[in-house]
Design a protein around this nucleic acid. Structure first.
Lengths: 330, 330
DNA sequence: TTGTAGGCGTTATCAG
DNA sequence: CTGATAACGCCTACAA
């Protein structure tokens, strides 16, 4: 492995001249081609470790998400990465598999790796957790919370308009005459789940409909829980006439359950799902879904982070709410 | 951010003593507690950049996979990470979104990051690509190919027994009396797809059955292609009586298509899918699937890598084939 | 434009 | 056991 020193030796120039040129500085044309030749010949590659040690920058951002196998997260990440790459940043992705211990560990890991910034989709992390990890790390590196907020933790945050989206979805069902609507939500500790539940309840209140606790099923955002809770909903004496499933994975489970039971959507039961990824796009007849602005969310999280990494802390903390769309068949 | 120097100053000891102690060396008890106190008080954290620069080791392995949103890959990765963590290694995951350009770029990125080893699930990379990237990087770092091999590239490789698995699956259908079996495979450039096709064709040969090209549908391992190709298979004048879908994502698409058409599995059509992840586990009646040894594959890839990173290059290159199981209803 | 020298935070050698 | 001191590879004033 050749170093900048070798290039210097090869060209007869000094290390600093090489370094300067390699970083976009001006050198004589003759030296320029000389250096190029040396780099080519020696196969010189900059040692990022050394550079980062000196500059205190890695040009790398860490992305921390609950699970690698969620289509929703994966999609958002793809968008984030694209934006970052365009700006000269690479990213390192960590999943913590819904494991709170790993969630903290991986966060530490990213800090240890000296990433220049972090985008986090939190799951169980509390404000205290975050503070302690970030404090220990010493350096104040930019952190963006994505999709979910953390209670009592002030930070740039990019979210979807969960309450409104949920409200609109449920309202549309009520408008169509449904009075008893089942909803399958995530654990209330996760802000999205909490908010989507709020939206549901608020409609019921606003329309003076009786709230029935047994119509609200709390899952864990996994496919399996969607499957099971949909069955639970339909296994009651008096099943709801419509079901609203509030994330993508649970929707897959619910649809699977429906298919198994021979229940047709939407003829046998009204149905609203979440997020237009893969399956939602090809299912026929199309299912009604709440479409989160995944692209926008990813992109603005990345952009805010880039801004912070540039040192621009104007209007901190930022709290963005991006609007979801309702994709409905008439 | 305090450094080892600060700890030295605080304790009155020298840098080297601190370093020695921090790396497991022996120091006097009194100094020991003194250092511990200083570390605690100053919130000292080792700078991995500096350490790695010096030691030439990052204790990090890179994992490069075609896509983050494939359940099969995600599952394997979880296993790999677990094994690595137990051995003091962290991992950095990169997906290249099925984009050949990104596949190379990310590989370079990992090399640039000075990972100590790499586990790669290749997609379009050729032996030449690999050689050129690895050569440029200079240092010879251990690389393990997982799930798929690269033609003409010698390297530790961990695979499933695709030919046999496919053969057995198809044979079981033939034994049950099926003569015309549709198969949905991936692109032949990917070794798993190539091999699973071989298995299929071999059965037909061995049983002296007429091979029909229109029964072999070539997709791209995506959910969408499974959906479409299943429909194509059934839209012919004389549809097959059984279908074998050779990866998880395409199976999801195929099942979706079947449900839409009101075709019941397995009463209306015999069906064999791939991999017992999520959906496969909860579908009822259960579908027949070929179960790849994901855990074993991930674990042994990690273990071989650990061995190589220790400098143990005995019996290189290793080529492991792990056996798939057939999970069948009688 | 080019070169000299110092330092980023560690580890490692070798005296003491 | 402890402490100078020299790297690791690079960047960056500052001087020439």
């Amino acid at each position: 492995m050749s170093t900048i020193k070798d290039v210097a030796k090869y060209t007869g120039l000094s290390i600093s001249t090489i370094s300067k040129y390699l970083n976009g500085g001006n050198v004589l044309k003759e030296n320029r081609i000389l250096i190029d030749e040396a780099v080519e010949k020696l196969g010189y590659k900059v040692n990022h470790l050394a550079r980062s040690l000196k500059t205190n920058k890695t040009k790398t951002v860490g992305i921390l998400i609950p699970s690698l196998s969620s289509a929703f997260f994966s999609h958002i990440i793809a968008v984030i990465e694209e934006t970052l790459i365009q700006n000269g940043y690479d990213s390192v992705i960590c999943g913590f598999n819904f494991d709170p211990k790993l969630e903290i560990r991986k966060l530490r890991f990213l800090l240890d790796k000296n990433v220049d910034g972090i985008i986090l989709i939190p799951e169980r992390l509390s404000a205290d957790d975050l503070n302690s990890v970030l404090k220990v790390s010493g350096k104040q590196i930019p952190l963006i919370l994505l999709d979910r907020y953390v209670n009592d933790f002030e930070c740039d945050t990019v979210l979807a308009d969960n309450i409104n989206a949920s409200y609109s979805a449920v309202e549309s069902l009520i408008t169509k005459g449904h009075k008893r609507i089942g909803i399958i939500v995530g654990p209330p500790e996760i802000s999205t789940a909490y908010e989507r539940t709020i939206g549901y309840k608020r409609v019921y209140q606003d329309y003076s409909l009786p709230a029935e606790e047994q119509l609200i099923k709390v899952g864990d955002y996994s496919l399996e829980s969607g499957y099971q809770l949909f069955n639970e909903l339909l296994d009651t004496e008096d099943p709801p006439s419509a079901v609203f499933v509030t994330n993508y994975d649970m929707m897959l489970g619910a649809i699977t359950a429906a298919n198994e039971r021979g229940i047709k959507i939407p003829s046998d039961i009204s149905f609203i799902g979440y997020d237009n990824i893969e399956l939602s796009l090809i299912i026929n007849p199309p299912i009604n879904i709440v479409v989160q602005p995944m692209d926008l969310m990813g992109e603005s999280a990345a952009k805010i982070l880039l801004k912070r990494m540039k040192g621009d802390y104007s209007s901190y903390p930022l709290m963005l709410r991006h609007k979801s769309r309702l994709l409905f068949e008439k």
